[in-house]
């Protein structure tokens, strides 16, 4: 495995939080959608973010894409805090460095425009090509890059003429049009047929290799996180509770929630010794949650401190960290979480 530690960090988020007001006209209550999230993505690195629905994965991507304003925290692009540099929203310059691919390729393409039009839009808006002739060449080049051959045929088609897998490739080509350094891929394969999912994942991996693009790969399918992700982070109720190099995380899950998640994934290899779940219950309400660890209510190892203080980050090894009171020095002293 290539050592990514030498690669420079492109994108970093620090203590990112997002709250949404709810509850009538006074809006006294708040949904704590994202709490104190920090991580970084290096050049050519795939960081996978895994979690159940409602855990805050998509909110993370949307904050980084600057589709929403965070409540607090920092988004650093190549060391610059974008929330300070561009406080009113992202500039064209930021948008052509950071692109997003959405989950549903059936609704992310405009049905009345051709594929060529979809790819031409970002080229025009971001002034990537000057002349019409160059534009067509570039469109064909992008379509060929995402495996749609012959490209000229695809450029003149409409979205309804394409399958789900082909549409998702169009969405990828559209993101590539502006030469991004970061792609935020929000469940890019979950709407696709099983037999074509792996092709799209392989394409993302190939682009990473060819262009050094860094990815935030969001998924609920932890096996696909292992397949494509260099690092994997696990999210629960708006908190990232554990992160590590992907294989390390799957082989030595440390947070009780990660352990639960892994034991729940169907695994045909363990047919002889089927696993049984020890934990019950579902994700707690995110509206004004009680203090402490969000997993405390379901955790088989819960201690009194877990209901009072959110654990701080404990490094288990150089690239494996966890936020849990079972580890580190949080055990005795009731220090407030960083």
């Amino acid at each position: 495995m290539i050592d990514l530690d030498d690669h420079p960090v492109v994108l970093e988020v620090r203590n990112l939080s997002k709250r949404f007001p709810v509850g009538g006209m006074f809006g006294k209550q708040q949904v704590h959608a994202l709490n104190d999230v920090s991580f970084s993505i290096r050049v050519g690195e795939v960081v996978a973010l895994v979690g159940e629905s409602g855990s805050g994965k998509s909110t993370t991507a949307r904050l980084i894409a600057r589709l929403m304003q965070p409540s607090s925290g920092e988004i650093l692009f190549k060391g610059k805090n974008m929330l300070k540099v561009e406080p009113r929203g992202a500039s064209l310059g930021y948008r052509n460095r950071v692109q997003m691919i959405f989950q549903d390729p059936f609704s992310s393409l405009n049905p009345v425009h051709t594929i060529g039009h979809h790819i031409a839009r970002p080229l025009l808006l971001h002034h990537k090509v000057q002349r019409r002739r160059d534009r067509e060449g570039r469109i064909n080049e992008l379509l060929a890059k995402v495996g749609l051959n012959p490209p000229a045929d695809f450029a003149s088609k409409f979205p309804y003429q394409l399958s789900g897998g082909q549409r998702q490739r169009i969405a990828i080509a559209r993101a590539l049009a502006v030469d991004p350094e970061i792609i935020l891929a929000d469940e890019p394969i979950s709407m696709l047929d099983v037999s074509i999912r792996i092709g799209v994942l392989n394409l993302l991996a190939q682009l990473k290799k060819d262009y050094g693009i860094g990815y935030l790969y969001i998924t609920h399918d932890i096996a696909s996180a292992r397949y494509i992700g260099d690092k994997t982070m696990v999210m629960y109720a708006g908190h990232i509770v554990e992160g590590a190099e992907s294989s390390e995380l799957m082989e030595h899950p440390s947070h009780p929630y990660t352990q639960l998640l892994l034991s729940a994934v169907p695994n045909p290899h363990s047919l002889d010794q089927p696993t049984r779940l020890e934990t019950r219950g579902e994700i707690p309400s995110l509206i004004d949650p009680p203090p402490g660890c969000p997993f405390a209510a379901r955790c088989p190892h819960v201690k009194p401190i877990c209901r009072e203080v959110m654990p701080s980050t404990t490094m288990l090894s150089a690239d494996h960290w966890v936020r849990c009171h079972l580890y580190g020095s949080d055990n005795s002293a009731a220090q407030p979480a960083a």
């Binding site: 399958s163 047929d193 099983v194 037999s195 074509i196 792996i198 392989n202 096996a223 892994l262 695994n267």
Partner: peptide, 21 residues
């Protein structure tokens, strides 16, 4: 069977199935 990644064992490149249904 070679379209879905596994949680265990060595990481291998999967090929899936070319084309669409």
């Amino acid at each position: 069977m070679s379209s879905f990644p596994s949680l265990v064992g060595p990481k291998v490149k999967l090929t899936g199935i070319p084309g669409s249904p």
